[in-house]
């Protein structure tokens, strides 16, 4: 109790005074993210086989996979929607994907002005061909 601790504290802050800042001027400079970063999602729709495993793996029922059957009775992707407001970014869907069609990307600025914009539509077939196969959403 003689003030030495106070002086030591002052010495430490004085030393820190000359160190370089560790912060980043964010909107101008951005940090390099690791490849595993859990950002938003990218769907390689040509790889997707519309198996719906991601839909099942999701703990919060975020994902909605719509599929149609084509002429060879093969399932094809019709739509892929994610309710991002419920997403936990846990990565279970990415892990469940057997063809690596669904992956994380490096996008992290996900704030939106309108609530409707939060919904992420990764794939939407332009015109759903009628007659052949049924839509299953």
């Amino acid at each position: 109790m003689n003030g030495m601790g106070l002086l030591k504290g002052l010495a430490i802050t004085f030393k820190e005074l000359w160190k370089k800042p560790v912060t980043l001027e964010y909107p101008e400079k951005k940090e390099k993210l690791p490849p595993r970063f859990h950002g938003s999602f990218t769907l390689y729709s040509e790889k997707c086989i519309a198996c719906g495993l991601c839909q099942q793996a999701c703990p919060n029922k975020v994902i909605k996979v719509g599929s149609i059957k084509d002429e060879n009775n093969k399932r094809k992707l019709a739509s892929y929607e994610m309710e991002m407001k419920y997403c936990l970014f846990c990565g279970l869907c990415v892990e469940a994907c057997p063809t690596n069609a669904l992956v994380f990307n490096q996008e992290y600025e996900l704030a939106k002005y309108n609530v409707e914009d939060i919904k992420l539509t990764l794939f939407k077939k332009e015109q759903i061909t009628t007659g052949e196969g049924s839509e299953n959403v």
């Binding site: 802050t13 005074l17 800042p21």
Partner: peptide, 10 residues
């Protein structure tokens, strides 16, 4: 900011 290794108002 200087003490705390930050940039401060800029």
């Amino acid at each position: 900011a200087w003490v705390q290794a930050r940039l401060g108002p800029n």
